[in-house]
């Protein structure tokens, strides 16, 4: 029978334990609880650029949150739908406090590979794609390429903060007129000026969060010519991406305090945004006479240089019927 002597317990077992008790140093504060030791930076007056995103674990709410340093768009702070402020349905970013991170995606995922930075920390590309789980529950395919990365495997989740600004849209309407009995010879073209989203949402920017930033959909020439796309009614700009990295050898579970946050900022300064938001100059219907070829030929005509003059007319018309706005640094 083996005995554990009390002096061995009090020295060999407890001494290493005692050495792990954190103490406050310069400009730091350590608070102890049954759940762990929280280290805070104190007394600092850090300069942070607009949109600086600072994720932190909230031990009281048991969740990850992030503060976004107020940035301004056209001189005003964006509204933050869903922010938790007493008495305000939709506070501005100047009033919003920490925002809970409640939409997370797994990385790698569909159309997203592991950044080499995280690959060097142990995040691996699965051999087979895996499903993106909801609310941060990570399920990673067990079959990873062990030989390529000797580090202990880790899971990675991420989410995006982004800005939206509503604007009017121009929606081209294209119809084929069968004037001579041969379908597709004549095309009628008109533009609808739609301000529904602008009137409903208003011109002030909004700070949103999503598992994945919905990149602006820019319609192609074919989309415009065919008139079969739905204008989005808003412009979007990525603000930052928050990543949460699991401890080594942990490939499942909801992110908790043991995970490590990383932030990739996309913008660093205040912004201006402008869209035309005026009726287009060529809103009146126009008619383009083809050369007897069907509409399908007209679609590929520009590349074949068979109908350059007609193509140029159509292109000129469409170039003045776009209302995509622009963000720029101020």
């Amino acid at each position: 029978m083996n005995f554990l002597l009390s002096r061995n317990w009090n020295t060999k077992v407890l001494e290493p334990h005692a050495q792990c008790i954190a103490r406050s140093g310069a400009r730091t504060h350590v608070s102890h609880s049954s759940e762990g030791q929280v280290i805070d930076l104190t007394g600092s007056a850090l300069w942070r650029h607009p949109w600086f995103t600072d994720p932190a674990w909230n031990p009281k709410q048991n969740r990850w949150e992030a503060t976004v340093n107020p940035g301004l768009v056209n001189g005003e702070d964006p509204l933050v739908p869903g922010a938790e402020i007493d008495g305000l349905d939709e506070p501005g970013l100047l009033d919003a406090k920490a925002l809970p991170l409640h939409r997370l995606r797994s990385v790698p995922g569909e159309e997203e590979r592991v950044d080499p930075y995280f690959a060097a920390l142990g995040v691996r590309e699965p051999e087979n794609p895996f499903s993106i789980s909801a609310l941060g529950r990570v399920t990673l395919d067990a079959t990873t390429r062990e030989d390529e990365n000797p580090l202990p495997p880790r899971a990675l989740v991420a989410m995006d903060f982004y800005l939206t600004v509503a604007r009017a849209t121009y929606e081209p309407q294209v119809s084929v007129v069968d004037a001579s009995g041969t379908s597709g010879q004549v095309v009628d073209y008109s533009v609808t000026f739609n301000t529904d989203n602008l009137r409903r949402v208003g011109p002030r920017a909004r700070l949103m969060q999503a598992a994945k930033f919905p990149a602006p959909r820019i319609p192609t020439f074919q989309d415009r010519l065919a008139g079969d796309y739905q204008a989005e009614g808003e412009d979007r700009q990525l603000v930052s991406t928050v990543y949460l990295l699991s401890p080594p050898n942990q490939l499942a579970g909801e992110p908790d305090a043991t995970w490590t946050p990383y932030v990739r900022h996309a913008i660093f300064w205040n912004l201006a945004h402008a869209a035309r938001n005026l009726p287009p100059q060529n809103a009146k219907p126009q008619r383009f006479q083809g050369t007897g070829l069907p509409l399908a030929d007209m679609l590929i005509g520009p590349w074949l240089a068979l109908q350059n003059e007609l193509y140029q007319k159509v292109l000129n018309a469409f170039n003045t019927t776009s209302n995509e706005g622009r963000f720029w640094t101020v």
Partner: peptide, 15 residues
């Protein structure tokens, strides 16, 4: 368990 290090404001912990 109480020895787990948790990050507060301005602190980054990397496991």
């Amino acid at each position: 368990r109480a020895l787990r290090l948790l990050p507060g404001r301005g602190i980054l912990l990397s496991q």
